[in-house]
Design a protein around this nucleic acid. Structure first.
Length: 105
DNA sequence: AGCGTGACGCAGG
DNA sequence: ACCTGCGCCACGC
């Protein structure tokens, strides 16, 4: 269960504080291109005390993805705002905070 | 071993 | 901008 998961963690850890990245971008960087879903699953499986900045990963719309438990959803928003990340009225992270632009790299 | 499900993403219409 | 379908792949039943 390591590899895939470890790779995802590694990429997540490379996201600069105060910035965010999409599941797709993380997947791409982890060598799991096209399997963004797996990134979501991998992060979902992380223990709550994990040092991995899972909150810096959002969906392609720059929004915090809906999940079964609303709790983590709120926590993610808090943690990001704590790092200075701002959201627009629709709950999307402003493009300015994306660590890596799409198509770039 | 098959099947549904899910923190996703992209191409079409 | 909105909705739909399809691809992806690990997990649990």
């Amino acid at each position: 269960m390591k590899n895939r998961n470890a790779l995802v963690c590694k990429v997540a850890l490379s996201i600069p504080r105060g910035f965010v990245a999409t599941y797709g971008q993380v997947a791409q960087r982890a060598g799991l291109a096209g399997a963004a879903r797996q990134v979501g699953y991998a992060l979902h499986a992380l223990p709550g005390n994990s040092p991995v900045p899972w909150h810096r990963v959002v969906n392609t719309h720059g929004q915090i993805s809906r999940r079964s438990d609303p709790g983590p959803e709120v926590e993610q928003r808090i943690r990001l705002e704590l790092e200075g990340v701002q959201f627009d009225a629709r709950g999307r992270v402003l493009a300015h905070y994306f660590a890596w632009r799409r198509g770039l790299e």
